[in-house]
Design a protein around this nucleic acid. Structure first.
Lengths: 223, 223
DNA sequence: CTCTATCAGTGAACTATTTCACGAGCTGCC
DNA sequence: GGCAGCTCGTGAAATAGTTCACTGATAGAG
């Protein structure tokens, strides 16, 4: 299956990023070739699943040998569009927005934070990690030359939908939403939610209920 | 099905927290009763799914009327164990740890941050949001009286596994992991991962590929 | 009190995802 | 070159999760 876009299961996409992470490490360690079986030890995904996931995008492996680390890394990077710069605008310069803006993990990644916005006049104009905090009112205008294509929403729940609308109007086509609320967008926009409270609440449910009977990979994985 | 623990699908648990959020708002707004159909407008989950989810835990609704908001809220809160204080230890006083520690959303929630730990001697002893940053080395010892049962890992990937092990040794039985790496725990421990980079990478995949054909709730939902 | 509209709960059907299991292709050693 | 041992790709089977569609109950109007 070559189309590389049509009917890829969501969980597969999520695991792809996991494989990428493994492959980057293997490449750094000078490993040339890896089989799906050995890969399991690195990323915790069973071999059959790894092979099936990869097979959605092409035939990358060689029977008897496994996958060429460099090659697979390059192909997956391309498929995930991580071979080009991805420009991010962060909306909300509170605790979370500030922490995200300062995240060191972006250093050797295609992700580049190009702007931080807030609507609080006490914050606008102040510096945050080498970025001037910009006026949210001017998002559309500024993004004409800033050209962020991914927006991160790090504002209170009440403001999230409005911020999402503004992001879309500004030309952003993917949103990572940290606000604990549902945001509605047209079907051609990708949204992922990260919801601290939801995760904690699910953990609470399991407290004192997990008694070694469930499968190995406890209440987790994908998403 | 009364057992309330046995074979609940993961996605159901995740949605339960969503229903809770709706119910809290409805209760605040003085709504007495809500049907699964009206609930859809509030949380974006289809009625059949809502009914099925709730039915795993008991029969909460009245035919012809719907669900009693107060009653359902109380029951779900109890089921999720959110009716009692939940004590959280945050490991890692970096950007992220600090942001989490200062999260205002915990104010009217059962979650209470009882300790923040780090292994950096420049940070230990300093104050962060009314908490003294404590020595990670002393986690087990301190947690004997601190009694955190949930641990949040906000350290670099390299340190995550070791921190997880220490948390478990200290009596924590649920972990929220923000480090971009797999952590291994015994099957009686609940883990949830929040992985910023993974989410961003999945978003990248969808960039310029979503062309209004896919279903409504774009690449998202559950996890 | 009766009739109608509404709505929960639920087995059955359906869809999505994971796992199995096997054929065929490399590799590298004799 | 031939054989043994891996390992991939993949249809088919199994499992997990969602949606349908129907039953029976309740509410509320008249």
């Amino acid at each position: 299956m070559r189309p590389a876009s049509d009917k890829i299961p969501q969980p597969t996409l999520s695991r792809l990023t996991l494989y990428l992470r493994c492959l980057r490490r293997l490449a750094r360690e000078g490993v040339n070739t890896i089989s799906s079986a050995k890969m399991e030890a690195h990323c915790g995904i069973v071999p059959a699943q790894i092979r099936k996931d990869l097979s959605y995008f092409g035939e990358f492996g060689k029977p008897g040998a496994g996958y060429d680390v460099q090659h697979l890394l390059a192909r997956l990077t391309e498929i995930m569009q991580l071979d080009r710069e991805q420009r991010i605008a962060i909306i909300g310069a509170g605790n979370l927005g500030a922490a995200l803006a300062g995240y060191a993990g972006f250093a050797q990644s295609p992700f580049r934070i190009v702007g931080i916005f807030d609507n609080n006049f006490n914050k606008i104009g102040r510096m945050l990690w080498n970025h001037e905090i910009l006026d949210l009112q001017r998002l559309s205008e500024i993004n004409q030359h800033m050209r962020a294509n991914i927006g991160i929403i790090a504002v209170p729940a009440e403001a999230a939908q409005e911020v999402a609308d503004q992001l879309l109007k500004s030309g952003v086509s993917a949103i990572l939403n940290f606000a604990p609320t549902l945001i509605e967008v047209p079907p051609d926009v990708a949204v992922r939610n990260v919801d601290l409270t939801r995760e904690l609440e699910v953990l609470c449910y399991h407290l004192d209920r997990l008694t070694s009977s469930p499968q190995d990979a406890s209440p987790n994985d994908d998403q």
